[in-house]
Design a protein around this nucleic acid. Sequence first.
DNA 1: GAGCCGTGGTC
DNA 2: TGACCAAGGCT
Length: 339
Amino acid sequence: MAAIVSEHLLEWYDAHARNLPWRARPGEPAPDPYRVWLSEVMLQQTTVAAVKPYFEAFTTRWPTVEDLAASPEEDVMAAWAGLGYYSRARNLVKAARAVAGQGGFPDTEEALRELPGLGAYTAAAVAAIAFGRRAVVVDANVERVVSRLFAIREPLPGSRKAIRACAEEITPDSRAGDFAQAMMDLGATICTSRDPKCLLCPLQAACRGRAEGDPAQLPVKAPKKAKPLRQGKAWWIERDEAVWLVRREGKGMLGGMRALPDDGWSAGGDGSGEPPLDGEWQGAGVVRHTFTHFALEMSVECQSTREEPQGQGEWWPVDQLDEAGLPTLFAKAARLVLA
DNA sequence: GAGCCGTGGTC
DNA sequence: TGACCAAGGCT
């Protein structure tokens, strides 16, 4: 069964592979490891459509890993703004500097796994796609395809071990990179989460989920927790056509990103409501934003001042706010004020 | 293992 | 329209 699956899938991939900017066409030499790594990190929990313009911008501005390694971290953070999961950008810079210091990318799964931001999935994907190593690449697509192919009915995440064992079984010794990308293309276009296109699937004859009549019900997932709703405030402080921006600290929510000052709202609780300046504030409205694990209603209040707010920050020209690299929540707040 | 960490698209 | 989803990693 294993050989049949990989043969049919690779044959399908040779005919139907998506043409993506970071990808070699079937039969072409493997692409630059830098481009493979960058695309894989950007694609973590992120759609192809969202990644494309960022990949284009990054590879134009930083054509090599050495260019990226030489860039100030804050420039990379600003360029990442809007893509989300900002720890990826922080780790991207760390990894680029490590790679540049080593004189190039390591070419084994084990060594790649040591770079910050490369977990089990990404290390396997880069090893297979960029270096032709046989590696078992398991992402959400593979979990879905394998769950259906083998009719695994144990709910995620408990079924991960069984899924990995089945993925190991069908991963071929050669063309492991094409095989991994084929699994992802199949998951993205045929074996989709909703309404799988079984009639077009190259694996339909081998699929136990299809044979058992309910492939769309797989994989079974544990129910998700409800998201709490939090309240908070952000402050728009303006002086001489410039707005006061701060840099968020550390590794927490939106860590390392430029932002408006706020009242300390978080996933764990509401903000204090305490403003960073005395004086009259004018309400500009409310921004509603949903994060992975909570929803936020953030009211935005404005003040023009001649004073310098407390703490670290910078006056940023309002007409150049697009270049500040604000994460989407604060970009929404700015839009509200400037509308 | 489970919680934390973004965003935009889809139905 | 709200819930779900997308090429996960870190702690």
